[in-house]
Design a protein around this nucleic acid. Structure first.
Lengths: 324, 324
DNA sequence: TTGTAGGCGTTATCAG
DNA sequence: CTGATAACGCCTACAA
């Protein structure tokens, strides 16, 4: 392994000078700077991050905790994060947590390892509470998910309002029997969207019209819709809390010979790239995905400066296409 | 910050003993072990990975380089990787590279930082060559993509054969005008699949039936198909090198009022989860995605043991559904 | 079984 | 502008 010592020796300077060159300190004559840089290149020297870290406690690495990468929603949020990160000379690393509580210890270990300057957490708020308790000194922010009333800065849309908008859109179209396909309520977004749906439905609300499934896979949406369509009085419209669930639901309708939106209207959430390609194209509540990620990273950068930025609520919007 | 020193002091032992407890050395009396562990808990002490790393050069962290997380193919491959990683007490971190050559330096920096015990690279082979040149001492393996003839162990399907199979399937159905929608040929899989397609087409091959696009977004597939359908003699069948491109292509057909598979048959690649939900459901070449990841991780674990495992070719299979 | 002490590669302080 | 040197927190011979 090549060290600053080797470089210093070869360039006939001290290690201190090499370090200065490395860190772009102004106080180095351009002659020596050039000499040192040549040697660095010739020897193929690279700084050892762990050694540097030991001194500076800075890695310029940010860790994003993602519950599930098979949900296309996250890919775009992450894109927003890493763009901003790179603009500020940080690198974004990802860890797919799969929300596995058994792994919690390994997990807290990672967060306390000081390998990352900060963390952006997209895990469900139930998990965030644990993190929050155990990880005190690491700057972190929450994205999309967050613990309500918690001091940790977060960025998110107003999930409840969004679900209300979706439901009211269907009500305005004359639908009365509107069902909800919700995902696991350990997620705040699921809890909140359910609340929004229920608020919009008011006294029309029927327990049997709410299907809760454990994730957002297409197949889960399909199954849930199958259940709903088997009811004595099946719904004429469905709100699904993710586009993937909505697509599964539409598949179930088709299988039953029902037309979307004529027989059953379906509205999704997120506006994933596929939403406009799918047939029928999806009416959906769009989240500003890249911006969600970008703002979250900005929040974290503020935290790095020792500030405590306010949380942000970004606006969603309903995109009307064919499915509802 | 709480250090081994603090713990040692409080437990009235030496730092060496604390370290032994930490690393589960046998030679500590259970009395002192217990005492030390109590103090560790009370003080909330955690090892500083960077300091440990400086001594041991082990992080039990593996880095996976992924070109593009919006391609659903990768999510499942990564799943396979992390499952195996965790079984062996390694943690998998991800970095979405977006194949940005301008960032190459930051990149090589990450690989040489010693923060990761090893790397699994899914970046295009063009990038891998650079990595290979600059990163000498880090164990790494390639997954799906690889430099042909290179010594780096890899796991992959036989892309060329897979494309031949797809094309021959269409030929066997009586199609004569078969087009190819290929993605960027900086990817080996794209190059190889094109070669397979061309081999299968033999003298039927027509340059104008090959569309090459820069990625695998739905929209790109749609555009490419639009071009193909505008030809004087449009193809009666399309091989798309990814399911996402295939779906885009189908969308283009529909927009033109063409039926799939009656007017145009379309076959995809990968068998992403959506393939069976999409309408028409996709006939596609399935890759063993999770296994691809799992085997790649196994290869890396072998490398950690100082071995040099042989590369592996996993088998693909054609799944017949509605689209072709 | 336990303690002492040296060093991993880097950076920052303090002189010169 | 440059150099010597002391940390950073941990691990591991070697000694006791």
């Amino acid at each position: 392994m090549i060290t600053v010592q080797d470089v210093a020796h070869r360039a006939k300077v001290s290690t201190a000078t090499v370090s200065r060159v490395l860190n772009k300190h102004a106080s180095v004559s351009s002659a020596t700077r050039e000499r040192v840089e040549t040697v660095i290149k010739k020897l193929g020297y690279r700084v050892d991050v762990s050694a540097r870290l030991l001194r500076t406690s800075q890695t310029r690495l940010v860790l994003a905790l993602v519950p599930d990468l098979s949900n296309p929603f996250y890919a775009e949020v992450l894109r927003g994060m890493s763009t901003v990160a790179r603009e500020h000379n940080y690198e974004l690393l990802l860890c797919e947590t799969m929300v596995d509580e058994a792994r919690e210890r390994a997990f807290v270990q990672m967060l306390t390892s000081r390998l990352y300057d900060g963390v952006i957490c997209m895990d469900p708020f139930t998990t965030q509470r644990l993190v929050s308790e155990q990880v005190k000194d690491l700057p972190w922010v929450a994205c999309s998910e967050f613990v309500q009333g918690d001091a940790v800065p977060h960025v998110s849309i107003n999930h409840q309002q969004a679900a209300m908008d979706a439901t009211q859109y269907l009500l305005a179209k004359g639908h009365k029997r509107i069902a909800l396909i919700n995902s696991d309520e350990k997620y705040l977004y699921a809890k909140a969207r359910r609340a929004g749906y229920e608020a919009a439905m008011g006294k029309r609300l029927r327990k049997s019209y709410i299907q809760t499934v454990g994730g957002v896979d297409f197949a889960l949406g399909e199954q849930a819709a199958k259940q709903l369509l088997a009811l004595a009085k099946p719904p004429s419209a469905i709100v699904a809390v993710s586009d993937t669930l909505a697509m599964g639901a539409i598949k179930a309708c088709r299988t039953k010979g029902l037309m979307v939106p004529q027989d059953v209207a379906v509205i999704g959430f997120d506006d994933i790239p596929l939403a406009s390609i799918f047939e029928p194209s999806l009416t959906t509540i769009a989240q500003p995905k890249a911006e969600l990620g970008a703002r979250a990273m900005h929040l974290l950068l503020e935290r790095f400066k020792g500030k405590h930025p306010a949380s942000e609520t970004l606006s969603h919007r309903l995109i009307e296409r064919e499915s509802a």
